[in-house]
Nucleic acid binder design. Sequence first.
DNA 1: CGAAGTATAGAACATTCGGAGAACTTTGCC
DNA 2: GGCAAAGTTCTCCGAATGTTCTATACTTCG
Lengths: 206, 206
Amino acid sequence: MVPPSLTRRQQEIFDYLREHLDDFPHPPTLDELCDALGLSSRGSLHKQIQALIEAGLVEPMNNLRRGIRLVEEDDITVAEDEGLPLYGYIAAGRPIEAIRNPETIAVPPQLRTPNPCYVLEVRGDSMIDEGILDGDWVVIEHRAQARNGEIVVALVDGEEVTLKRLEQRAGEVILHPANERLQPMHFRPDQVQIQGVLVGQMRRYH
Amino acid sequence: MVPPSLTRRQQEIFDYLREHLDDFPHPPTLDELCDALGLSSRGSLHKQIQALIEAGLVEPMNNLRRGIRLVEEDDITVAEDEGLPLYGYIAAGRPIEAIRNPETIAVPPQLRTPNPCYVLEVRGDSMIDEGILDGDWVVIEHRAQARNGEIVVALVDGEEVTLKRLEQRAGEVILHPANERLQPMHFRPDQVQIQGVLVGQMRRYH
DNA sequence: CGAAGTATAGAACATTCGGAGAACTTTGCC
DNA sequence: GGCAAAGTTCTCCGAATGTTCTATACTTCG
Protein backbone atom coordinates (compact mmCIF):
# COMPACT_ATOMS: atom_id res chain seq x y z
CA MET A 1 0.00 0.00 0.00
CA VAL A 2 1.56 3.22 -1.11
CA PRO A 3 -0.07 6.43 0.01
CA PRO A 4 -0.57 8.93 -2.78
CA SER A 5 2.98 9.84 -3.54
CA LEU A 6 4.12 13.25 -2.50
CA THR A 7 4.73 16.04 -4.93
CA ARG A 8 8.18 17.42 -5.05
CA ARG A 9 7.42 20.34 -2.82
CA GLN A 10 5.63 18.18 -0.29
CA GLN A 11 8.65 15.91 -0.15
CA GLU A 12 10.92 18.89 0.37
CA ILE A 13 8.83 20.19 3.20
CA PHE A 14 8.60 16.78 4.80
CA ASP A 15 12.34 16.32 4.55
CA TYR A 16 12.86 19.71 6.08
CA LEU A 17 10.59 18.87 8.97
CA ARG A 18 12.35 15.59 9.57
CA GLU A 19 15.69 17.34 9.61
CA HIS A 20 14.94 20.48 11.54
CA LEU A 21 11.93 19.96 13.73
CA ASP A 22 14.19 19.30 16.67
CA ASP A 23 16.02 22.57 16.14
CA PHE A 24 13.10 24.54 17.47
CA PRO A 25 12.66 24.85 21.23
CA HIS A 26 8.95 24.45 20.65
CA PRO A 27 7.34 23.20 17.50
CA PRO A 28 7.24 26.21 15.22
CA THR A 29 4.21 28.20 14.19
CA LEU A 30 3.22 28.23 10.56
CA ASP A 31 4.66 31.71 10.24
CA GLU A 32 8.00 30.62 11.63
CA LEU A 33 8.01 27.69 9.26
CA CYS A 34 7.16 29.93 6.35
CA ASP A 35 10.11 32.00 7.29
CA ALA A 36 12.40 29.01 7.48
CA LEU A 37 11.16 27.65 4.19
CA GLY A 38 11.20 30.95 2.40
CA LEU A 39 7.45 31.20 1.91
CA SER A 40 5.48 34.32 2.51
CA SER A 41 1.99 32.93 2.75
CA ARG A 42 0.80 31.00 5.75
CA GLY A 43 -2.07 29.67 3.74
CA SER A 44 0.17 28.12 1.13
CA LEU A 45 2.19 26.29 3.72
CA HIS A 46 -0.95 25.11 5.42
CA LYS A 47 -2.16 23.60 2.21
CA GLN A 48 1.06 21.62 1.84
CA ILE A 49 0.98 20.48 5.42
CA GLN A 50 -2.55 19.26 4.92
CA ALA A 51 -1.31 17.05 2.15
CA LEU A 52 1.31 15.58 4.46
CA ILE A 53 -1.34 14.95 7.07
CA GLU A 54 -3.44 13.10 4.53
CA ALA A 55 -0.42 11.10 3.55
CA GLY A 56 -0.15 10.03 7.15
CA LEU A 57 3.25 11.57 7.71
CA VAL A 58 2.30 14.46 9.99
CA GLU A 59 -0.01 14.53 12.99
CA PRO A 60 -3.19 16.51 12.49
CA MET A 61 -2.94 19.79 14.36
CA ASN A 62 -6.56 20.72 14.83
CA ASN A 63 -6.35 24.37 15.59
CA LEU A 64 -3.61 23.62 18.08
CA ARG A 65 -0.95 26.24 18.31
CA ARG A 66 2.51 25.01 17.56
CA GLY A 67 0.85 21.71 16.97
CA ILE A 68 3.00 20.41 14.15
CA ARG A 69 4.44 16.98 14.83
CA LEU A 70 5.70 14.12 12.73
CA VAL A 71 4.09 10.73 12.90
CA GLU A 72 6.38 8.26 14.66
CA GLU A 73 8.25 6.30 12.06
CA ASP A 74 7.23 3.01 13.59
CA ASP A 75 3.63 3.90 12.97
CA ILE A 76 4.13 4.69 9.34
CA THR A 77 2.58 1.92 7.36
CA VAL A 78 5.42 0.08 5.75
CA ALA A 79 4.63 -1.79 2.62
CA GLU A 80 6.52 -4.91 3.37
CA ASP A 81 3.98 -7.66 3.42
CA GLU A 82 6.01 -9.51 0.90
CA GLY A 83 9.28 -7.70 1.09
CA LEU A 84 12.24 -7.44 3.37
CA PRO A 85 14.08 -4.23 4.10
CA LEU A 86 17.03 -3.67 1.79
CA TYR A 87 19.62 -1.94 3.91
CA GLY A 88 22.07 -1.29 1.14
CA TYR A 89 25.63 -2.33 0.63
CA ILE A 90 27.49 -4.50 3.02
CA ALA A 91 30.92 -3.18 3.91
CA ALA A 92 29.34 0.22 3.67
CA GLY A 93 31.03 1.30 6.85
CA ARG A 94 28.35 1.75 9.41
CA PRO A 95 26.04 -0.25 11.61
CA ILE A 96 23.01 -1.69 9.92
CA GLU A 97 20.64 -0.21 12.45
CA ALA A 98 21.70 3.28 11.50
CA ILE A 99 19.83 3.20 8.24
CA ARG A 100 16.48 4.88 8.39
CA ASN A 101 14.03 4.24 5.66
CA PRO A 102 15.11 1.22 3.71
CA GLU A 103 13.70 0.14 0.45
CA THR A 104 12.14 -3.26 0.48
CA ILE A 105 12.73 -6.17 -1.80
CA ALA A 106 10.74 -9.30 -2.45
CA VAL A 107 12.25 -12.50 -1.10
CA PRO A 108 10.77 -15.93 -1.69
CA PRO A 109 9.94 -17.76 1.53
CA GLN A 110 12.38 -20.59 0.92
CA LEU A 111 15.27 -18.14 1.00
CA ARG A 112 14.47 -16.73 4.41
CA THR A 113 13.58 -17.99 7.85
CA PRO A 114 10.49 -17.30 9.92
CA ASN A 115 12.55 -14.92 12.04
CA PRO A 116 13.22 -11.29 11.18
CA CYS A 117 15.42 -10.96 8.12
CA TYR A 118 16.85 -8.23 5.99
CA VAL A 119 18.69 -7.97 2.71
CA LEU A 120 22.09 -6.55 1.85
CA GLU A 121 23.78 -5.99 -1.46
CA VAL A 122 27.26 -7.43 -1.57
CA ARG A 123 30.23 -5.30 -2.49
CA GLY A 124 33.58 -6.88 -3.16
CA ASP A 125 34.97 -10.30 -3.81
CA SER A 126 35.77 -11.47 -0.31
CA MET A 127 33.29 -14.38 -0.48
CA ILE A 128 33.89 -15.33 -4.08
CA ASP A 129 34.93 -18.88 -3.33
CA GLU A 130 31.57 -19.41 -1.68
CA GLY A 131 29.81 -18.37 -4.85
CA ILE A 132 28.86 -14.96 -3.48
CA LEU A 133 29.76 -12.32 -6.03
CA ASP A 134 29.89 -8.56 -6.18
CA GLY A 135 26.36 -7.27 -6.63
CA ASP A 136 24.57 -10.30 -5.19
CA TRP A 137 21.80 -9.86 -2.68
CA VAL A 138 22.17 -11.78 0.54
CA VAL A 139 19.33 -12.55 2.93
CA ILE A 140 20.37 -12.17 6.56
CA GLU A 141 18.55 -13.46 9.61
CA HIS A 142 18.78 -10.77 12.23
CA ARG A 143 20.38 -12.17 15.37
CA ALA A 144 23.37 -11.48 17.58
CA GLN A 145 24.71 -14.99 18.06
CA ALA A 146 26.06 -17.45 15.55
CA ARG A 147 27.81 -20.78 15.50
CA ASN A 148 31.24 -21.50 14.13
CA GLY A 149 31.16 -22.11 10.44
CA GLU A 150 28.17 -19.92 9.76
CA ILE A 151 28.56 -16.95 7.46
CA VAL A 152 27.78 -13.82 9.41
CA VAL A 153 27.36 -10.09 9.03
CA ALA A 154 29.94 -8.77 11.45
CA LEU A 155 30.34 -5.21 12.67
CA VAL A 156 34.00 -4.66 13.49
CA ASP A 157 35.04 -1.90 15.89
CA GLY A 158 31.62 -0.37 15.50
CA GLU A 159 32.54 0.79 12.03
CA GLU A 160 33.00 -1.71 9.30
CA VAL A 161 30.36 -4.23 8.29
CA THR A 162 31.55 -7.33 6.50
CA LEU A 163 30.30 -10.73 5.43
CA LYS A 164 32.62 -13.49 6.58
CA ARG A 165 32.70 -17.06 7.80
CA LEU A 166 32.84 -17.10 11.60
CA GLU A 167 35.24 -18.90 13.87
CA GLN A 168 35.03 -18.14 17.57
CA ARG A 169 37.93 -19.31 19.72
CA ALA A 170 38.86 -18.77 23.32
CA GLY A 171 39.83 -15.14 23.53
CA GLU A 172 39.60 -14.32 19.85
CA VAL A 173 37.28 -14.19 16.89
CA ILE A 174 38.46 -15.08 13.42
CA LEU A 175 36.67 -13.91 10.32
CA HIS A 176 37.47 -16.02 7.26
CA PRO A 177 37.03 -14.55 3.79
CA ALA A 178 36.19 -17.06 1.12
CA ASN A 179 38.82 -15.83 -1.27
CA GLU A 180 42.14 -17.59 -1.48
CA ARG A 181 43.96 -14.32 -1.98
CA LEU A 182 42.71 -12.85 1.29
CA GLN A 183 43.83 -13.73 4.79
CA PRO A 184 41.64 -14.50 7.81
CA MET A 185 41.33 -11.60 10.20
CA HIS A 186 41.80 -11.94 13.97
CA PHE A 187 40.01 -9.78 16.51
CA ARG A 188 39.32 -9.57 20.21
CA PRO A 189 35.78 -10.71 21.00
CA ASP A 190 34.80 -7.22 22.08
CA GLN A 191 35.71 -5.83 18.68
CA VAL A 192 33.24 -7.96 16.77
CA GLN A 193 29.49 -7.68 16.94
CA ILE A 194 27.36 -10.12 15.01
CA GLN A 195 24.46 -8.50 13.21
CA GLY A 196 22.99 -11.48 11.44
CA VAL A 197 23.55 -14.80 9.77
CA LEU A 198 23.45 -15.60 6.08
CA VAL A 199 20.40 -17.66 5.17
CA GLY A 200 19.89 -16.95 1.47
CA GLN A 201 21.39 -15.42 -1.63
CA MET A 202 20.04 -14.12 -4.95
CA ARG A 203 21.54 -12.83 -8.16
CA ARG A 204 20.11 -11.41 -11.37
CA TYR A 205 21.63 -11.72 -14.81
CA HIS A 206 19.51 -9.31 -16.77
CA MET B 1 -4.06 -11.27 -20.60
CA VAL B 2 -2.90 -8.93 -23.30
CA PRO B 3 -0.28 -9.81 -25.86
CA PRO B 4 1.92 -6.82 -25.15
CA SER B 5 3.63 -6.72 -28.50
CA LEU B 6 5.68 -3.61 -28.13
CA THR B 7 7.27 -1.86 -31.04
CA ARG B 8 10.99 -1.56 -30.98
CA ARG B 9 10.94 2.00 -29.74
CA GLN B 10 8.38 1.21 -27.08
CA GLN B 11 10.58 -1.60 -25.85
CA GLU B 12 13.56 0.72 -25.77
CA ILE B 13 11.72 3.30 -23.76
CA PHE B 14 10.34 0.71 -21.40
CA ASP B 15 13.79 -0.75 -20.86
CA TYR B 16 15.15 2.69 -20.21
CA LEU B 17 12.48 3.36 -17.64
CA ARG B 18 13.12 0.09 -15.92
CA GLU B 19 16.80 0.87 -15.72
CA HIS B 20 16.82 4.51 -14.84
CA LEU B 21 13.58 5.45 -13.15
CA ASP B 22 15.26 5.08 -9.79
CA ASP B 23 18.02 7.46 -10.79
CA PHE B 24 15.68 10.40 -10.52
CA PRO B 25 14.98 11.84 -7.09
CA HIS B 26 11.41 12.25 -8.20
CA PRO B 27 9.80 10.66 -11.18
CA PRO B 28 10.84 12.77 -14.14
CA THR B 29 8.68 15.07 -16.17
CA LEU B 30 8.11 14.28 -19.80
CA ASP B 31 10.51 17.04 -20.72
CA GLU B 32 13.23 15.59 -18.55
CA LEU B 33 12.64 12.19 -20.05
CA CYS B 34 12.78 13.61 -23.53
CA ASP B 35 16.11 15.06 -22.63
CA ALA B 36 17.38 11.79 -21.28
CA LEU B 37 16.14 9.88 -24.31
CA GLY B 38 17.33 12.39 -26.85
CA LEU B 39 13.89 13.40 -28.03
CA SER B 40 12.86 16.97 -28.51
CA SER B 41 9.10 16.65 -28.53
CA ARG B 42 7.10 16.04 -25.42
CA GLY B 43 4.17 14.98 -27.51
CA SER B 44 6.06 12.20 -29.20
CA LEU B 45 7.21 10.73 -25.94
CA HIS B 46 3.72 11.00 -24.56
CA LYS B 47 2.37 8.91 -27.37
CA GLN B 48 4.88 6.15 -26.72
CA ILE B 49 4.15 6.22 -23.03
CA GLN B 50 0.47 5.89 -23.78
CA ALA B 51 1.24 2.69 -25.65
CA LEU B 52 3.10 1.36 -22.62
CA ILE B 53 0.16 2.27 -20.42
CA GLU B 54 -2.17 0.36 -22.69
CA ALA B 55 0.18 -2.59 -22.59
CA GLY B 56 -0.20 -2.50 -18.83
CA LEU B 57 3.45 -1.82 -18.14
CA VAL B 58 3.24 1.75 -16.91
CA GLU B 59 0.81 3.32 -14.49
CA PRO B 60 -1.62 5.77 -16.03
CA MET B 61 -0.56 9.28 -15.12
CA ASN B 62 -3.78 11.17 -15.48
CA ASN B 63 -2.58 14.71 -15.66
CA LEU B 64 -0.40 14.07 -12.67
CA ARG B 65 2.87 15.86 -12.71
CA ARG B 66 5.86 13.61 -12.49
CA GLY B 67 3.34 10.85 -12.53
CA ILE B 68 5.31 8.31 -14.48
CA ARG B 69 5.57 5.01 -12.69
CA LEU B 70 6.11 1.44 -13.68
CA VAL B 71 3.48 -1.12 -12.88
CA GLU B 72 4.78 -3.33 -10.08
CA GLU B 73 6.20 -6.39 -11.69
CA ASP B 74 4.18 -8.52 -9.33
CA ASP B 75 1.06 -7.13 -10.91
CA ILE B 76 2.05 -7.75 -14.47
CA THR B 77 -0.20 -10.42 -15.80
CA VAL B 78 1.79 -13.54 -16.21
CA ALA B 79 0.80 -17.03 -15.25
CA GLU B 80 2.86 -16.88 -12.10
CA ASP B 81 0.57 -16.30 -9.21
CA GLU B 82 1.80 -19.37 -7.48
CA GLY B 83 5.36 -19.32 -8.63
CA LEU B 84 7.37 -20.73 -11.46
CA PRO B 85 7.51 -24.37 -12.51
CA LEU B 86 10.45 -26.21 -11.00
CA TYR B 87 11.48 -28.66 -13.63
CA GLY B 88 14.06 -30.46 -11.56
CA TYR B 89 17.71 -31.03 -12.04
CA ILE B 90 19.56 -29.67 -14.95
CA ALA B 91 21.71 -32.23 -16.71
CA ALA B 92 18.94 -34.66 -15.93
CA GLY B 93 19.15 -36.07 -19.39
CA ARG B 94 16.01 -35.15 -21.21
CA PRO B 95 14.31 -32.17 -22.80
CA ILE B 96 12.67 -29.76 -20.43
CA GLU B 97 9.39 -29.92 -22.25
CA ALA B 98 9.05 -33.59 -21.47
CA ILE B 99 8.29 -33.00 -17.84
CA ARG B 100 4.61 -33.07 -17.11
CA ASN B 101 3.52 -31.82 -13.75
CA PRO B 102 6.24 -29.76 -12.25
CA GLU B 103 6.28 -28.43 -8.75
CA THR B 104 6.32 -24.68 -8.49
CA ILE B 105 8.60 -22.43 -6.56
CA ALA B 106 8.27 -18.78 -5.55
CA VAL B 107 10.58 -16.40 -7.40
CA PRO B 108 10.84 -12.70 -6.61
CA PRO B 109 10.01 -10.50 -9.58
CA GLN B 110 13.44 -8.93 -9.77
CA LEU B 111 14.98 -12.33 -10.47
CA ARG B 112 12.84 -13.05 -13.50
CA THR B 113 11.69 -11.31 -16.64
CA PRO B 114 8.15 -10.57 -17.76
CA ASN B 115 8.45 -13.40 -20.23
CA PRO B 116 7.78 -17.05 -19.41
CA CYS B 117 10.36 -18.47 -17.04
CA TYR B 118 11.05 -21.69 -15.22
CA VAL B 119 13.41 -22.89 -12.52
CA LEU B 120 16.02 -25.61 -12.52
CA GLU B 121 18.09 -27.02 -9.72
CA VAL B 122 21.78 -27.14 -10.56
CA ARG B 123 23.76 -30.34 -10.32
CA GLY B 124 27.49 -30.32 -10.61
CA ASP B 125 30.28 -27.82 -10.53
CA SER B 126 30.53 -26.86 -14.15
CA MET B 127 29.61 -23.22 -13.50
CA ILE B 128 31.42 -22.83 -10.21
CA ASP B 129 33.61 -19.97 -11.41
CA GLU B 130 30.45 -18.01 -12.18
CA GLY B 131 29.29 -18.43 -8.61
CA ILE B 132 26.72 -21.07 -9.50
CA LEU B 133 27.08 -23.97 -7.12
CA ASP B 134 25.71 -27.46 -6.80
CA GLY B 135 22.21 -27.24 -5.41
CA ASP B 136 21.51 -23.65 -6.50
CA TRP B 137 18.27 -22.77 -8.20
CA VAL B 138 18.56 -20.96 -11.50
CA VAL B 139 15.78 -18.96 -13.11
CA ILE B 140 15.60 -19.48 -16.87
CA GLU B 141 13.76 -17.36 -19.39
CA HIS B 142 12.20 -19.72 -21.86
CA ARG B 143 13.37 -18.88 -25.36
CA ALA B 144 15.11 -20.54 -28.24
CA GLN B 145 17.60 -17.87 -29.22
CA ALA B 146 20.43 -16.38 -27.29
CA ARG B 147 23.37 -14.09 -27.83
CA ASN B 148 27.00 -14.94 -27.44
CA GLY B 149 28.14 -14.60 -23.87
CA GLU B 150 24.79 -15.42 -22.33
CA ILE B 151 24.51 -18.43 -20.09
CA VAL B 152 22.03 -20.83 -21.62
CA VAL B 153 20.25 -24.08 -20.98
CA ALA B 154 21.33 -26.18 -23.94
CA LEU B 155 19.90 -29.48 -25.07
CA VAL B 156 22.66 -31.43 -26.81
CA ASP B 157 21.82 -34.19 -29.27
CA GLY B 158 18.30 -34.20 -27.91
CA GLU B 159 19.53 -35.89 -24.78
CA GLU B 160 21.67 -34.00 -22.37
CA VAL B 161 20.66 -30.67 -20.82
CA THR B 162 23.43 -28.45 -19.52
CA LEU B 163 24.00 -24.93 -18.29
CA LYS B 164 26.87 -23.28 -20.13
CA ARG B 165 28.09 -19.99 -21.52
CA LEU B 166 27.25 -19.77 -25.20
CA GLU B 167 29.52 -18.97 -28.11
CA GLN B 168 28.07 -19.31 -31.59
CA ARG B 169 30.54 -19.30 -34.47
CA ALA B 170 30.18 -19.91 -38.14
CA GLY B 171 29.52 -23.61 -38.43
CA GLU B 172 29.90 -24.50 -34.81
CA VAL B 173 28.58 -23.89 -31.34
CA ILE B 174 30.88 -23.80 -28.34
CA LEU B 175 29.62 -24.34 -24.81
CA HIS B 176 31.97 -22.95 -22.17
CA PRO B 177 31.89 -24.32 -18.65
CA ALA B 178 32.84 -21.84 -15.94
CA ASN B 179 35.27 -24.17 -14.26
CA GLU B 180 38.93 -23.95 -14.98
CA ARG B 181 39.30 -27.71 -14.82
CA LEU B 182 36.78 -28.34 -17.60
CA GLN B 183 37.24 -27.79 -21.31
CA PRO B 184 34.87 -25.98 -23.70
CA MET B 185 32.79 -28.35 -25.81
CA HIS B 186 32.37 -27.96 -29.57
CA PHE B 187 29.25 -29.01 -31.49
CA ARG B 188 27.62 -28.64 -34.86
CA PRO B 189 24.78 -26.12 -34.75
CA ASP B 190 22.21 -28.81 -35.39
CA GLN B 191 23.31 -30.70 -32.30
CA VAL B 192 22.52 -27.89 -29.91
CA GLN B 193 19.08 -26.60 -29.07
CA ILE B 194 18.71 -23.63 -26.75
CA GLN B 195 15.97 -24.03 -24.19
CA GLY B 196 16.37 -20.86 -22.24
CA VAL B 197 18.65 -18.16 -20.92
CA LEU B 198 19.82 -17.63 -17.36
CA VAL B 199 18.22 -14.58 -15.78
CA GLY B 200 18.42 -15.27 -12.05
CA GLN B 201 19.90 -17.46 -9.36
CA MET B 202 19.02 -18.32 -5.75
CA ARG B 203 20.64 -20.29 -2.95
CA ARG B 204 19.63 -21.17 0.59
CA TYR B 205 21.99 -21.67 3.49
CA HIS B 206 19.68 -23.14 6.08
C1' DC C 1 7.79 2.48 -56.27
C1' DG C 2 3.81 2.53 -53.10
C1' DA C 3 1.29 1.33 -48.95
C1' DA C 4 1.01 0.69 -44.18
C1' DG C 5 2.75 1.23 -39.93
C1' DT C 6 5.90 3.82 -36.90
C1' DA C 7 8.43 7.80 -35.05
C1' DT C 8 9.31 12.74 -34.44
C1' DA C 9 8.51 17.64 -34.17
C1' DG C 10 5.86 21.34 -32.90
C1' DA C 11 1.85 23.99 -31.86
C1' DA C 12 -2.30 24.53 -29.26
C1' DC C 13 -4.88 23.33 -25.35
C1' DA C 14 -6.00 21.64 -20.49
C1' DT C 15 -4.76 20.69 -15.89
C1' DT C 16 -2.02 20.69 -11.83
C1' DC C 17 1.22 22.72 -8.65
C1' DG C 18 2.80 25.97 -5.74
C1' DG C 19 2.25 30.24 -4.03
C1' DA C 20 0.03 34.95 -2.56
C1' DG C 21 -3.06 37.25 0.13
C1' DA C 22 -7.47 38.31 2.23
C1' DA C 23 -10.98 36.94 5.35
C1' DC C 24 -12.62 33.99 8.84
C1' DT C 25 -12.22 31.03 13.12
C1' DT C 26 -10.15 29.34 17.10
C1' DT C 27 -6.98 29.53 20.92
C1' DG C 28 -4.52 31.46 24.76
C1' DC C 29 -4.03 35.07 27.80
C1' DC C 30 -5.21 39.39 30.27
C1' DG D 1 -15.26 39.53 27.58
C1' DG D 2 -11.69 41.41 24.72
C1' DC D 3 -7.56 41.17 22.18
C1' DA D 4 -3.71 39.40 19.76
C1' DA D 5 -1.66 35.39 17.87
C1' DA D 6 -2.08 31.47 15.34
C1' DG D 7 -4.65 28.02 12.55
C1' DT D 8 -8.10 27.51 8.66
C1' DT D 9 -10.48 28.45 4.43
C1' DC D 10 -11.06 30.70 0.33
C1' DT D 11 -10.14 32.76 -4.25
C1' DC D 12 -6.97 34.00 -7.68
C1' DC D 13 -2.72 33.73 -10.49
C1' DG D 14 1.29 32.24 -13.20
C1' DA D 15 4.33 28.77 -14.49
C1' DA D 16 5.20 24.06 -15.24
C1' DT D 17 3.60 20.07 -17.02
C1' DG D 18 0.47 16.63 -19.17
C1' DT D 19 -2.62 15.96 -23.37
C1' DT D 20 -4.17 16.25 -28.02
C1' DC D 21 -3.66 17.02 -32.76
C1' DT D 22 -1.57 17.75 -37.24
C1' DA D 23 2.08 17.45 -40.43
C1' DT D 24 6.21 15.30 -41.89
C1' DA D 25 9.78 11.89 -42.22
C1' DC D 26 11.41 7.24 -41.75
C1' DT D 27 11.03 1.75 -42.14
C1' DT D 28 9.59 -2.28 -43.77
C1' DC D 29 7.60 -5.20 -46.86
C1' DG D 30 5.67 -6.63 -51.12
